[in-house]
Design a protein around this nucleic acid. Sequence first.
DNA 1: ATAAATAATGAACATTATGTTGTTTATTCA
DNA 2: TGAATAAACAACATAATGTTCATTATTTAT
Lengths: 198, 198
Amino acid sequence: MNKKVDLRILRTKQSIRKAFYELIQEKGYEAITIQDIADRAVINRNTFYLHYENKPDLLHTCMDELLSEVKNVIVQCPINMNPFSISKLETVMQAILEHISRNTSFYQAMLIQENRIHPFREKMENIIKEKLNEGGNPAAGKSSFVISKELLLEYLVSSFMGVIIWWIKNDQPLPASEVSSQFSRLVAYGRLNVAGIE
Amino acid sequence: MNKKVDLRILRTKQSIRKAFYELIQEKGYEAITIQDIADRAVINRNTFYLHYENKPDLLHTCMDELLSEVKNVIVQCPINMNPFSISKLETVMQAILEHISRNTSFYQAMLIQENRIHPFREKMENIIKEKLNEGGNPAAGKSSFVISKELLLEYLVSSFMGVIIWWIKNDQPLPASEVSSQFSRLVAYGRLNVAGIE
DNA sequence: ATAAATAATGAACATTATGTTGTTTATTCA
DNA sequence: TGAATAAACAACATAATGTTCATTATTTAT
């Protein structure tokens, strides 16, 4: 029953988190040393090890906290995705974007910073971008086909995340409602119908 | 004019690359030490520094080589994306997938290995997946709207990469032609028309 | 308000990886 | 075969990690 948390622990943990997020944005995760964190948080390096095993441990703890918030946001959407509908997709995305808006610095630290092999993905995307960017307007067409369910899911999720990251990276150039509306229309009707000519 | 490359250099560089790719797949980029690479390549640790500044330098050199190959593949597609068309998109994607097929181990090392904050993206995607996965079948609809060009580009690229990574991760469960065909249809006509009822 | 509990400090230490500098040995090139 | 140079070998300075232990300070609970 006794659930009091020692104030010192609370204070220390808060300082560490704050220092950590700041440092990630300043120099990137990899470059951070425990001493950096200790200095910034104004604690002894030893004290860090009293609360976290090491740097990855701290990282994962922070991530899990953030992600449980996301989970909450999604759960609190009074919506069940079965049957699937575009307006539901739109609602969920908007909720997530608004949640991100409330925690901008966290998400910038987690999703925008360059890190390891991840830049490879970026570089590769840039190359593909170059090619796709040549594209102007599409031609029309219409039909019904078999699509791998897994492929479709992957398609949805990655475009979802892609748009989110784009939105964060560009300091939210559009309102959350607009982004989620455009996104869901793209998903629903496709590039030809939505963005192209008729 | 004299462009002979010393065989010793060639041999050493090859061993280093080979060792590096193997080690990435075995223990992940972060965990690798220069000594690991030297041991595996059967060279002196010092020799490593004769050819690369440090671990990131080696990584980026490897990445750049691979990426220039991708660039080649894309350029060699005798296709200009302007005007945009779905069959062009399909052709380009198929070319890239086939290129990946020819260099599977490289791409697995580069795109699949877990690394740093990147797992955050994965975790977050999983949460969104959970929600989206509830979805069954869609309803119909049709119209024409304004879509942010940047958002559209980001949408395309990230879904493109997402499908590619999915394909690699799952050991190419479908032929390259099938994946690119399904993908481009999704892009063109949207989830409702392609994957849905109607 | 005070005593007991415990968090934080400070210093020391072993360990491991990095990156550098010479010197020596072996291989390649011409 | 001799000159050039890559690779090996050894030694070193530096920096970060993670652990230990005694001491100090703060918080909690009585």
